[in-house]
Structure formats: structure tokens, C-alpha cells
Design a protein around this nucleic acid. Structure first.
Lengths: 218, 218
DNA sequence: CAGGAAAAGTGCGTGCACGCAAGTTTGCGG
DNA sequence: CCGCAAACTTGCGTGCACGCACTTTTCCTG
């Protein structure tokens, strides 16, 4: 599980992915999301368009991935970092809240950009699915006795809850579409704190975690 | 909630969608999924390719939708049909099992075809997301006091659990080299029935339903 | 330190999704 | 019965995703 020597191959790969991410985001911010073609991103990153396509399955994914970065591992690591004594439901909730709040703060401006385009918004929301696998692994570790299936279901439920929380957070509270049209208008993105929304969305799942945890303890 | 008069417009629309579905499936079965182009589907259904594209966002979606049909409404209706006395968790589980078992039996041959192509498999698994909205509505109705947010989270969790169950079900009978894949797998159920898999995947969510239901009852 | 296997990058070709701006059909008062 | 507005269809053009075959780079092993 460790990285003995990173290896040149791996480092180059990460560098390329990083370059593509950064290029995609920078160009999208500079000239607007619709004015950036795959060709531009690839050129800015110094690779061929075909190679870009080996890293990202869609233009939206590339742009969004600059924000989401490696959120998946961070969340999983944050859960693993919690002491073994805490309720699993709490460990997961706090790990998620922590990471997303952090992200939501750092990238507030970019999130604004993302909400302006439906395709980007969807890609962003879809990125929550990525936390499923790592989270499932770390949950399975704590729920030794309860079978991998249960861990997967719980992890997927968490991912879904996070997605719903983000949906609610990104939806402009300013009365439907009235203000949403004017792109440059007020910074109306976050309604209520993201942390609160995440906690509220995750709360209904706590009993499921408790029950699973209970069963392994015996 | 009723359909006062269907209306010509609406009827035509449904007929077109149905024709596209049927054409897509028939052609895919006849000549293999990769040998059918959008142009063929559209022609077989008597519309332009552009119109086809107004109904389905991808070729895979068109083919798969012939199998999934209007599963969403059927499941929601099945839940609503259960007497108000039963545990909500049971009502949902039974409704899901009922509808999927039915579907899995009727379309066994087609499901085999779907598993042969990754893109189709993904589209099929992705179609579980469609049950989220109707299910959310019907759950919210039973959980009058618990807020719409809870209903959405629960519905999304169910959708995710169903997806996981289907993943597990489609993998083993997919043929080929499934067995030698992972040596770590301890309790790999060879290939249980779909109903069993669905029940197993939904079971971990039952406590969450119970808790939500409990809170509304007071 | 070869030298070959594996992996990453690349060019090309094909079919596709979808915005846009017509044209066509349906529905609804007047 | 008319005519207009909204909904649906269509042709066209653009960029894109991705399979395939091939070159280049990295890695490993004798």
C-alpha cells in the first residue's frame, strides 16, 4: 500500500494529469467555459488531444477535476484518521464535512463559474460518485464482520447524500431563475452553510451505520 | 395526477419514444449492439436522427430503455399500493424486488446481451438513478413529518443499493474470466438470485427507514 | 548493460451529441 | 372556422469521445 519509490513513469503521469487539470481550469476561467476546446487544453498542457482524452472522458470532467482534485483519498484518509472509538456515523460525517467545507472555501470563485453551466454543474455533482470506492474500503475495514456488501451500500448512500446536499447548496435560493441569468450578478451561490447541509443530508443515514456497527461488535 | 384526456400531441410523443425503443432493441439483438448506428434506429422508427436525439441522450440509453421501460413509475406505484400499516422499509424492499424480479425474468435474454458490452452495462446500471425521483415522492408522502430532504436521501440510497445489487448480479453470469479476478474475495456468493441480492443490498438501509418512520409517528 | 516487454503518447478515422435556426404540426381561444 | 402561439421535428454544422494501429518512453531482468 506504500509508495516505495514513486517511479518516473508514475510521476510523469501525475504531472500530465495535473497539467491538464490546471490548463483546463485556467482557460475556462480566462475565457469562459464554452470558449475552451479540448484542443486548447491539450496544447496548453503540452500533449496531444488524444492524450488528453486518455486522462479525461469529457471536457467538463477535466475542468471540474481541478476543483475536486483528490478529494476521494482525502475523505477516506480523514475517516481512517478518526480514533477507533468514535461512532462510525460520526467519523464519516465529520470527515466529509471537514473536507468539503475546506474545498468549498478555497474554491468559492471557481464554484461560481461551475454553477453557470449545466454541464459543469452535473459533472461536479457526478464527481461525488468518486468517493464511493475509497470510502467503501475504509468503512469495510471498520465493519470487519458485516460483509463488504454492506460497506458498499453505506458508502454509496453517503455519496448520494453528499450529492443531494450539494444540489441544494448550488441551487440559487434567489427565486428560481430570475437572478440566475445574469452571470456576473451578486455572489448568490451559497445559501446556508455547506456544512449544515451536509450534516442534515447525512443524518438520516446514521441509524444504518449504527446498526451495522452494532452487528460487528458482537 | 390523472390524465384527463391524453391528447394527440402526447400520444404521438409516446408512440415515437416507443418506436425508437423498440427499433433500438430489435436492431441491437438482430445484428449486435455495435453494428447499429443511430441513423439505423431513427430510420427504423421513421424519424430523423436529430429527432431520435431529442428523445435519448445516447445510443446506449435508447437500447437499455427498451428493457427498463417505465420501471420508475411501476416501483413508485408498487410502494404506494402497500397498505399503510407495513413498515416502510419492507414496503420499499418488496416493491423493488417485485418489479426487478419480474423484469429480470421477462428480459433475461436481453440482459445477457447487455452484459456483453461495457457501455450498455453502464447505461443499464445508471438507469437505477431514474427511480430516485418517483420513489422520493412516494416516500415523502409516507414520511409526512420528516422533511423532503430525508425522503430524497433515502430514495437515493435505495437507488444506489439497487445499483450495487445489479452490479453484483451481472458480474458472475457475465461469462468469461470472472473467477480468477480477485483472490481476496472471501465470501463471494456464486450467483444468488436477483431477489436475494436486492434484499441483501437493501437490508442495511432498513434501520434508516425505521428511524425516519419512527420520528414521524410521534 | 543490453534488449525486450509493458505502458504511455500520438495520428487518424468514424460515429455521435447537441446548439441553432428554420419548417411543420397541434392546440386554443376568438 | 381562423389564426396565432407553443410544441415538436428536421437539416446543418461543430466539437468531441474513442477504437485502432503505431511510435516512443520507461522499466525490468538476465
Amino acid at each position: 500500500m506504500t509508495t516505495p519509490p514513486p517511479g518516473l513513469r508514475e510521476r510523469k503521469k501525475r504531472a500530465t494529469r495535473e497539467a491538464l487539470r490546471e490548463a483546463a481550469l485556467r482557460l475556462a476561467v480566462e475565457r469562459g467555459p464554452d470558449q475552451v476546446r479540448v484542443e486548447d487544453i491539450a496544447e496548453a498542457a503540452g500533449v496531444s488531444p488524444r492524450t488528453y482524452n486518455n486522462y479525461f472522458a469529457s471536457r467538463e470532467q477535466a475542468i471540474v477535476s481541478a476543483v475536486t482534485a483528490d478529494r476521494e483519498e482525502r475523505i477516506a484518509a480523514a475517516v481512517a484518521a478518526r480514533p477507533a472509538g468514535v461512532r462510525l456515523a460520526d467519523a464519516v460525517t465529520e470527515a466529509v464535512v471537514e473536507q468539503y467545507a475546506h474545498e468549498g472555501e478555497r474554491e468559492r470563485g471557481v464554484l461560481l463559474l461551475i454553477t453557470t453551466r449545466t454541464a459543469l454543474r452535473d459533472a461536479f455533482l457526478g464527481s461525488t460518485a468518486g468517493i464511493e470506492a475509497p470510502l467503501s474500503a475504509v468503512i469495510a475495514e471498520r465493519l470487519e464482520g458485516a460483509g463488504a456488501q454492506t460497506a458498499r451500500v453505506l458508502a454509496a448512500s453517503v455519496a448520494a447524500a453528499v450529492r443531494i446536499a450539494l444540489e441544494g447548496w448550488l441551487r440559487p435560493p434567489g427565486g428560481g431563475e430570475a437572478a440566475a441569468d445574469l452571470g456576473v450578478a451578486g455572489l448568490v451561490v451559497p445559501s446556508g452553510s455547506l456544512s449544515d447541509r451536509l450534516r442534515a443530508a447525512l443524518a438520516p443515514l446514521a441509524p444504518a451505520f449504527d446498526a451495522a456497527e452494532q452487528r460487528t461488535r458482537q
